[in-house]
Design a protein around this nucleic acid. Structure first.
Lengths: 248, 248
DNA sequence: TATCATCATGCTGTTTTTTGCAATAATTTA
DNA sequence: TAAATTATTGCAAAAAACAGCATGATGATA
């Protein structure tokens, strides 16, 4: 059997079933494990599939890029960079929805070992590319706009967990009125998130500071740390300084 | 024997079998290996075939688009088109993971009113663009490879629902051995999906027919309808005809 | 017809590629 | 952490590719 035929057979198997074991290749094609491994390695180098421990998987599973343009991305990236530094190996965290939180998910180092809960579809998709992050999606009815799970079911799931850190966003935040939202459903959810976490970290671009809306999520003192893209000493953060909240 | 005749004979062989060995050329045409090699080399330079170590393969054999695009998309689209016709306004369905099911999600008409459960992140993302589809994600630990929720939590969620139709995929299917999978976890999940549905519809490209693997999901008679890209009368479906299963 | 150039073919020896095996290291899994 | 599986590395045998050369056929030309 020609090598190219083996390659074709392996690719076909991977495309059809998304994965294949080296031992299966060896058996089906009647070659040694070593040859199967070499074949897979070559196909990997040609970017025809991805070699993994013990076998190979299809590329279509590893490639996901949201790619849309995100508003105020540089600021959000800066916030996410600060937030990443709080993560510890072996930690259990929750990541909320929203583009800032998505940015945090994106910046999680590949070698960092985490257990990560989320309610956000985009965040969950992003986390798929982190080999050492166990992803747990808290299910429920999906909100089309926010792309997150909401409703009683999601809230109930949250009542059953307690994470080290939760990284949350907010629609509006004010030094006096605390965190507020446009949506009643979202407020219920965020309350539950905060209750489910030992420490709640708020990721928020400075543009949202000193704004408020209809429904209240919580007071500022329920938030452990506020991360903005600003220097913690920035004048804009002055109203937040004389509170228990940490600034980063 | 003239060189041109040999060339024609070699090309003929390659057309017929997609491949040929140098040793076979030499033997069949009664020339030395070197001549066979030279012939193949010339044909390669003329782009009539591709020379590889030990022989030659047909050009069509090697032209193969890897990665991002979905394997056998036309077939899967055809299957999805058939499946969409089963959907009724106001129906409650479940859509499994996999590219075929994703294609079904994509083809759901915008005006169709549905309640749709799913375990698959990509399917859920796709359904976000359907304004009249209520999406409910059944949460759990996310499998990085399959991009679906798995584990006890997901199975438990499934035990609490009953949908009209579930549209499922399978790794392998055989008329005698039924549906089988590579993964134990996935089998548990599919069992639960089938149990949670009044009628289970299997979406499966014909290439997967008559294949099997380690772990068994269910017998064929637990599936209500099998949809392939083939005509229901196709000869390939013969082994599936004398069963209770419907063919589409 | 004789001579020469060209080309196809097969042979020889050398180099490269492929493949399987064994020992060791790294990794997963229980 | 220990056991099992998988990777890596080096090596050797076999197969194939390659380069160079000799032979013989062909065909053009003097």
């Amino acid at each position: 059997m020609l090598k190219e035929e083996r390659h074709q057979a392996i690719l076909n198997e991977v495309e059809l079933h998304n994965r294949v074991l080296l031992t299966d290749i060896a058996e089906i094609l009647g070659v040694s494990i070593d040859t199967a491994r070499r074949d897979v390695k070559e196909l990997d180098e040609e970017n025809k599939l991805r070699k993994v421990h013990g076998g190979a998987i299809s590329l279509s599973f590893t490639n996901y890029s949201p790619g849309h343009n995100i508003y105020a991305l540089p600021q959000k990236t800066k916030i996410a960079e600060k937030a990443v530094k709080l993560l510890k190996d072996g930690g259990v965290i929750l990541i909320d929805g929203g583009t800032t939180c998505l940015e945090l998910a994106r910046l999680i180092p590949l070698k960092l070992k985490l257990t990560c809960f989320t309610l956000s579809l985009p965040v969950a998709m992003e986390l798929l590319s982190k080999p050492n992050v166990e992803v747990i999606f808290l299910g429920g009815v999906i909100s089309k706009e926010a792309q997150i799970a909401i409703g009683a079911n999601a809230v109930h799931h949250l009542s059953e967990i307690k994470v080290d850190y939760s990284f949350i966003g907010t629609g509006y935040v004010d030094a006096v009125y605390g965190l507020t939202e446009f949506d009643w459903d979202i407020v219920q959810l965020k309350k539950a998130v905060i209750k489910a976490s030992k420490k709640a970290i708020l990721l928020c671009i400075s543009e949202k500071l000193n704004s408020q809306h209809r429904y209240k999520t919580c007071d500022l003192n329920e938030i452990h740390t506020l991360i903005t893209e600003l220097d913690p000493e920035d004048i804009m953060l002055k109203p937040f300084r004389n509170q228990q909240i940490h600034l980063l």
